[in-house]
Amino acid sequence: MPSSRSTAALIGIALLGIALTACQDQASGQVVARSGVRLVETLSNPPIHGCHRFPEGVTHVENQTQSNLVLYTAPDCTVPAGGQSNYLDIGQSDQVASVTSPWLSFAFAPE
């Protein structure tokens, strides 16, 4: 019966891996923020909960994480009057049009 024990152990390890991934509190990957061509910030494995404020307004954001995020023109992840937000899919980037305000914050979209 060594074969069934090995199989059971492999299944147990696989289930543990799935459970740990489901309980993850961090987005795997990076969020890269730029102002024009200048790098402003790179966040590695940021927490998925809460609002994340950029140190200054950014015009370009690359979502290199495994989670979707929402960009905001307000520093507190809200949409003020005349402001906007933008949904950014996994692996996508966004360029702000020159007539809009820069992105000041982001939050991860609920899954």
Rank of each mutant, 00 (worst) to 15 (best):
P2I: 15
S3C: 04
S3T: 11
S4K: 14
S4D: 07
S6Q: 13
S6G: 11
A8M: 05
A8G: 04
A9T: 15
A9G: 03
L10W: 07
G12K: 04
A14Y: 05
A14P: 06
L15D: 04
L15M: 13
L16N: 11
L16P: 03
G17S: 13
I18Y: 04
A22P: 09
A22S: 09
C23Q: 12
Q24P: 00
D25P: 11
D25I: 08
Q26D: 11
A27V: 10
Q30Y: 07
V31I: 15
V31A: 06
V32H: 00
A33L: 08
A33Q: 01
S35K: 14
G36A: 10
G36S: 07
G36C: 07
V37N: 13
L39C: 08
L39A: 11
V40Y: 05
E41I: 15
T42P: 01
L43D: 07
L43G: 01
N45M: 06
P47M: 06
H49P: 00
H49A: 13
G50P: 03
G50S: 10
C51G: 06
H52M: 10
R53M: 09
R53I: 15
F54N: 02
E56D: 10
G57R: 04
V58Y: 02
V58M: 06
T59I: 08
T59C: 03
H60L: 13
H60G: 05
V61D: 00
V61I: 12
V61W: 00
V61Y: 00
Q64W: 13
T65I: 06
T65A: 03
S67K: 05
S67W: 04
N68D: 08
L69W: 03
L69Q: 04
L71S: 02
L71T: 06
Y72R: 02
T73Y: 01
P75T: 14
P75R: 08
P75V: 09
T78R: 13
T78C: 00
T78L: 12
V79W: 02
A81V: 12
G82A: 07
G82Y: 03
Q84D: 12
Y87H: 13
D89M: 13
I90F: 03
I90A: 02
G91I: 10
Q92W: 02
S93L: 06
V96T: 14
V96S: 01
A97L: 13
A97P: 13
S101W: 02
P102E: 04
P102D: 09
W103Y: 15
W103E: 01
L104E: 11
A107V: 09
A109C: 10
A109W: 05
E111L: 13
E111M: 05
E111A: 09
